[in-house]
Design a protein around this nucleic acid. Structure first.
Lengths: 125, 125
DNA sequence: TCACCTGGTTTCCTCCTGGAAACCGGGCGG
DNA sequence: CCGCCCGGTTTCCAGGAGGAAACCAGGTGA
């Protein structure tokens, strides 16, 4: 029995923890959270940095994260208008784990690719 | 600049780390990895435990994880046949982080739900 | 007046995910 | 011979995610 099951059962359908986990299991959200770790960033800056994300998806994901209380959205009446996104305290408690996950991916990338190659060879048609 | 960017740039398109992150950003994969932490488990056992997962998706996800070298698949010629899935060493290095993520979700679930409610009220139509 | 900046929203359309349910094969048990 | 167990695969299908691109608003400068 894992630590999680002691209190709730994540494996249960409709468990609220699952909903949270669903939201976290989103590559764009993870990348954005990681990107915000260094301080507030503006919309188009994120968009330029995270290659391949569309305007729509960035906007949607940011709003989800804001709704969850993980990030804040601040509007400055500069010209042109500036909108800054920043980690909220709640979000900051999460980035350690997110970073760890990204870190793990970076560190074990080679092993995974090697495993995939080995698998593909032995399971070839 | 975050730790990740020092070596690779996860934000770059086609970065291999992104592919790994994509795979990890999958609620079913995370749940399965968490479920396997306690030791080897059989196919139908996982299926029964993780409520709501379909046979197809479970099968697909397990094969992906196996291909990535994260879990192993062992067949025992019992009657009826027994198939056990277990964490590989590589997968075990990951479960700490996955558990942390699941833990975080459990711990901060209430805060998130509260944030959502507050957001929905202030942004109501 | 027109163009252009930011920071979006909306529309359209396509592809992929994932659910439901049927089917399968080996190996017994009755 | 039929049925049932496990551990899948296959088929069909509906819904949603997400990309591309157009549109929009407020404000400024030429």
């Amino acid at each position: 029995m894992t630590a999680i099951q002691q209190a709730y059962n994540v494996y249960e359908d409709r468990c609220p923890t699952r909903l949270v986990l669903d939201r976290l299991a989103d590559k764009w959200a993870l990348l954005i959270l990681d990107r915000l770790e260094g301080g507030p960033v503006r919309f188009n800056h994120i968009r330029r940095d995270i290659k391949g994300i569309s305007q729509k998806v960035l906007s949607q994901t940011l709003r989800k994260l804001e709704r969850d209380g993980l990030i804040s959205r601040s509007i400055f009446p500069t010209v042109p208008v500036t909108v800054e996104y920043a980690l909220m305290p709640l979000g900051r408690t999460l980035t350690d784990t997110v970073s760890a996950l990204a870190h793990w991916a970076e560190k074990n990338m080679d092993a995974i690719v090697a495993a995939q190659r080995a698998y593909d060879q032995t399971h070839a048609a």
